[in-house]
């Protein structure tokens, strides 16, 4: 992990409200609060994760930090500059990457894409060639530099996006769900690149739905939900906050969902998480008394077949689900 020095991003009490009008003749004004007073800071050289369910406000926050959206109220500072009033000064020093296959010119080669974006960031021609070669090497696309992007796989496009985001050698790189839809090998390669970038001194703010990815990469994590901050700390500390909680995990065949929800009535069971699959239901119970929970499970599930019962420490995903998902999810 990198050395942490000082704040490079400061977000204080940021709110963003979207105002829309519904209807044609009788227009009704509708307001949606995407961010409700969010505050956090990011240290120089760290990988900071912004995690939350769909609609939590992650992309809105990234848009504000990358000058693409102004907040309704609150203070934002990126590299000591205000993204609202100092957008022109800030833009050369940051860059952003959005997940998915788009955001590239598919009819151009990988090299030409990078050359084009280098020109948009006013990189002198004398520096462009060397930098593009280095970037293509970094993301492992040097052998296909002159192939059209439309011939690339999804993983190659994602990696080229990373290279595109680095053409201006940004001090801060914003990644919005960079590994979405990637196969495990491509996602791992992408994580290696992110780590390598961070080792070279780039501060990274990323959003992701993959908890193991956040756990593996991030120095610190902020959980946000419905525009509000739920928790911000290192993955280790977040997990330690539930130190006295264990997860009892099992699979069960032949039981109704309502029967599983009954576990919530037990005082030592703090969270019930279940996923119904084709033939069985996978259940996770968060409890401070795992030994006591096991007999309760067998008692409640009489007549059902219980398999693969285990007791583990909560993962980041378990903590996330517990914090965001309420009593049952």
């Amino acid at each position: 992990m990198s050395t942490i020095n000082n704040n490079i991003i400061n977000v204080s009490q940021v709110k963003r409200t979207y105002k829309t009008e519904v209807g044609i003749i009788k227009k009704k004004k509708k307001e949606v609060d995407a961010l409700k007073g969010l505050s956090f800071s990011v240290n120089k050289g760290e990988i900071f994760g912004l995690l939350g369910p769909n609609g939590a406000g992650k992309t809105t926050m990234i848009k504000i930090l990358t000058t693409m959206l102004t907040p309704s109220s609150g203070e934002v500072s990126v590299l000591g500059l205000n993204p609202v009033t100092d957008a022109k000064k800030l833009r050369p020093h940051i860059n952003f990457i959005l997940g998915g296959e788009r955001n590239l010119y598919w009819r151009l080669s990988a090299y030409d894409n990078l050359a084009y974006f280098s020109d948009l960031y006013k990189i002198p021609r004398s520096e462009q060639h060397g930098r593009i070669q280095d970037l293509l090497e970094l993301v492992g696309l040097q052998d296909v530099a002159h192939q059209r992007v439309e011939t690339f796989s999804k993983g190659m496009k994602q990696r080229l996006q990373i290279a595109r985001g680095l053409v201006n050698n940004p001090e801060i790189l914003f990644l919005d769900e960079p590994s979405i839809g990637l196969d495990p090998v491509s996602a791992r390669k992408l994580r290696e690149i992110i780590r390598q970038l961070n080792d070279n001194g780039t501060t990274i703010l990323l959003t992701t739905h993959y908890m193991f990815e956040a756990d593996e990469l991030c120095d610190r994590i902020a959980f946000i939900d419905k525009g509000e901050l739920i928790e911000v700390d290192s993955p280790q500390n977040i997990k330690q906050k539930t130190n006295n909680v264990s997860v009892v995990e099992f699979s069960v065949i032949g039981i109704e969902a309502t029967k599983i929800q009954e576990f919530t009535h037990h005082p030592d069971i703090h969270h019930v998480q279940f996923e119904q699959q084709e033939f069985l239901t996978k259940v996770k119970l968060h409890t401070t008394d795992p030994q006591g929970a096991v007999p309760i499970i067998y008692e409640n599930m009489k007549g059902a077949i219980i398999q693969d019962l285990s007791i583990t420490k909560p993962s980041l995903e378990d903590v996330y689900v517990q914090l965001i998902g309420g009593k049952v999810s």
């Binding site: 990358t66 000058t67 693409m68 788009r102 590239l104 598919w106 974006f117 960031y121 006013k122």
Partner: peptide, 18 residues
């Protein structure tokens, strides 16, 4: 359509010139 418009708009380049 290609999703590049927002990247162009958020870059430091002079938009009128571009």
């Amino acid at each position: 359509y290609m999703g590049t418009f927002q990247h162009v708009m958020a870059s430091p380049v002079n938009k009128a010139g571009l």
